[in-house]
């Protein structure tokens, strides 16, 4: 039973150039205790998906269809008051740039206490003890001192740890992490990813990890959802997707990565550009860039087809394989 289930989610943005279809029917499930990677390039809709779940879309954006179930509740039908109890409390979010997500005017301890008081009861002393334990568990050294410093006194990696402590303060079931390591150096990124894996293991927290980095997905996630132009093109277990990618876009992305031994060869290139989302797309959004394009691809929206127990791809190439 999925903890979080997104069904046929559609989101549109109002822009000066017309309606932008950011999400055009997204489906995925997050099982309890899994880390699920939402991966894709700029503009594929991965962050919009995360923000839709939190109901934190900007004012010019609206969900135009679909449902988001958390346990049994459809988040899109909750009142703002009901959503407030879930946001932070049950589903928390961490962002790419902790420096802008943390409040510069309050100490780390005050900010964590703020979340504790809003979401959990307990005496001042209990809260302080819980707070210091929490800060130590995310790897902030000298928690007692660290609680009294302001965000600008921390390094980027420490700020992201503080952000993670903040998101854990209300003991959520799900964390949505939107490019949590993109602004960090590789050695610090390794520390933060290690922390996420440990939290998942020790607290059985479920994580939606939004990233553009396929390497991070391979090393951190159990499940992968590959997005292209606001739709899921492929999803499955990391083993299935990386060992046996079936959508031409997923294959193209993996082939475009420089790897040991690729020196002296041309990297594989996906020609053309990502569609803007402003123009209507009848068939497969990837068709104009696809080397296997067929006449049908221009007209027919490919549904997600099951290729194995936990592996689906939305490509008409697989129609024969599935039905025949």
């Amino acid at each position: 039973m999925a903890l979080l289930r997104v069904e046929n989610l559609h989101v549109r943005f109002k822009t000066p150039f017309g309606a932008l279809r950011a999400l055009r029917g997204i489906d995925f499930d997050l099982a309890r205790g899994d880390i699920l990677g939402l991966v894709g390039e700029t503009g594929c809709g991965k962050s919009v998906t995360g923000r839709s779940v939190m109901r934190l879309l900007d004012e010019n954006a609206a969900v135009t269809g679909g449902r988001i179930f958390f346990e049994d509740a459809d988040l899109l039908r909750l009142t703002e008051g009901e959503m407030h109890k879930i946001r932070g409390n049950r589903i928390a979010m961490i962002f790419q740039d902790p420096a802008t997500a943390l409040n510069p005017l309050f100490t780390i301890g005050q900010q964590i206490d703020d979340v504790q008081r809003t979401h959990r009861a307990g005496s001042t002393r209990d809260r302080r003890r819980a707070r210091l334990e929490l800060m130590a568990s995310v790897g902030l050294p000298d928690a007692a001192q660290m609680a009294d410093v302001y965000p600008h006194q921390l390094s980027g990696g420490q700020q992201q740890r503080a952000m993670i402590a903040l998101s854990l303060a209300a003991e959520p079931d799900v964390i949505i992490a939107d490019e949590p390591t993109t602004a960090l150096d590789v050695t610090i990124q390794a520390q933060i990813l290690d922390l996420l894996r440990r939290l998942q293991r020790e607290r059985s927290i479920s994580v939606v990890l939004i990233t553009h980095d396929l390497g991070i997905v391979a090393e951190t996630c159990q499940k992968v959802v590959v997005l292209y132009a606001g739709r899921v093109v492929e999803k499955g277990t990391v083993e299935a997707i990386f060992a046996d990618p079936q959508h031409p876009y997923t294959r193209g992305l993996l082939a475009a990565l420089p790897r040991p031994g690729s020196r002296g060869t041309d990297l594989k290139v996906i020609p053309g550009n990502v569609p803007s989302g402003l123009e209507a797309i009848d068939g497969c959004a990837f068709a104009p860039r696809c080397e296997f394009v067929m006449e049908r691809c221009q007209r027919q929206l490919p549904p997600l087809m099951s290729l194995a127990a936990e592996h689906q791809a939305a490509c008409l190439l697989h129609e024969a394989a599935v039905h025949g």
């Binding site: 610090i188 990124q189 390794a190 997905v217 391979a218």
Partner: peptide, 22 residues
């Protein structure tokens, strides 16, 4: 540095060296 760089291969079982501190 080499061991911290994520590689797109979920089956790789190399030992990660995680540097402490900054």
């Amino acid at each position: 540095l080499l061991s911290s760089t994520p590689t797109p291969d979920p089956t790789s079982d190399r030992q990660r060296i995680i540097l402490p501190g900054t």
